[in-house]
Simulated scan of single mutants.
Amino acid sequence: MGPSSKRHASWIMTRQAALPTVRRTDLDELLATCPEMTAVTGLVHEFAHIMSNRRGSELDCWMKQVREARLPELKPFLTGLDQDHDAAVASLTLPFSSGPIEVVNTKTKLIKRQMHGRTGCQLLRRRILLA
């Protein structure tokens, strides 16, 4: 029995230089047997390049390529980008991040879960402020 589809997806999502030689060989064999996977892999890598280099202006061109390729695997992702296109372009262009806020929210929710049913809001508030 060969590798799972999740394993294949992780190989596709990983930078080629970071894949061990054995995995890169396995991925090359997979891509050689399935032209659709080759197209998906190329589009995924191109999107990663757009994302890592903050080239939001190239998003529309990439979306057009995905539509022309008619790959059902990328259709849900494309639908999501279409639904909030302006936000997607802004997130791929602007240097701002909601990461610090998400860290605070995660810590607050963790403390809240730990405190569930133990005491009132005052102690919860103190623990959040001390954290």
Rank of each mutant, 00 (worst) to 15 (best):
G2N: 12
S4F: 06
K6M: 07
I12P: 10
I12Y: 01
M13F: 08
M13V: 13
Q16M: 03
A18P: 08
P20H: 13
T21D: 15
R24E: 13
D26C: 04
D26S: 14
D26H: 11
D26Q: 13
D26G: 09
D26L: 07
D28E: 14
E29D: 10
E29K: 13
L30P: 05
L30Y: 11
L31Y: 05
L31H: 01
A32Q: 05
T33F: 02
T33V: 03
P35M: 02
P35F: 04
P35D: 07
P35K: 02
P35G: 04
E36P: 03
T38A: 02
A39R: 01
A39T: 11
V40N: 11
V40M: 03
T41C: 08
L43K: 02
L43G: 12
L43D: 01
V44Q: 03
E46R: 06
A48D: 06
H49S: 06
H49P: 01
M51T: 12
N53W: 15
N53Y: 15
R54L: 09
R55C: 11
S57P: 00
S57N: 08
S57I: 03
E58A: 08
E58G: 03
L59A: 02
L59N: 05
C61V: 00
C61M: 12
W62Q: 09
W62P: 06
W62I: 00
W62F: 00
M63Q: 11
K64E: 09
K64W: 02
K64T: 03
K64D: 07
Q65M: 06
R67W: 00
R67V: 15
E68W: 08
R70H: 10
R70E: 09
R70L: 10
L71Q: 00
L71P: 12
P72S: 13
P72C: 10
K75L: 10
P76S: 01
F77P: 05
L78I: 08
T79Q: 12
T79V: 14
T79M: 06
G80R: 00
L81R: 00
D82K: 07
Q83P: 03
Q83K: 02
H85L: 06
H85N: 05
A87R: 14
V89C: 07
L92N: 11
T93L: 06
T93H: 08
L94I: 12
P95G: 07
F96Y: 09
F96W: 05
S97M: 04
S98N: 04
G99E: 04
G99N: 05
P100F: 13
P100G: 06
P100M: 11
I101S: 15
I101Y: 12
E102Y: 09
E102V: 04
V103G: 14
V103C: 07
V104K: 00
N105G: 05
T106I: 10
T106K: 14
T106N: 09
T106P: 02
K107L: 07
T108R: 01
L110Y: 14
I111D: 05
I111N: 04
I111H: 03
K112Q: 03
M115A: 05
H116Q: 02
G117M: 10
R118T: 11
T119N: 07
C121D: 12
C121L: 15
C121A: 10
C121S: 14
C121T: 15
Q122T: 08
L123K: 07
L123W: 12
L124P: 01
R125M: 15
R125H: 10
R125E: 04
R125G: 09
R126A: 15
R127G: 08
L129N: 03
L129C: 13
L129A: 15
L130K: 05
A131D: 12
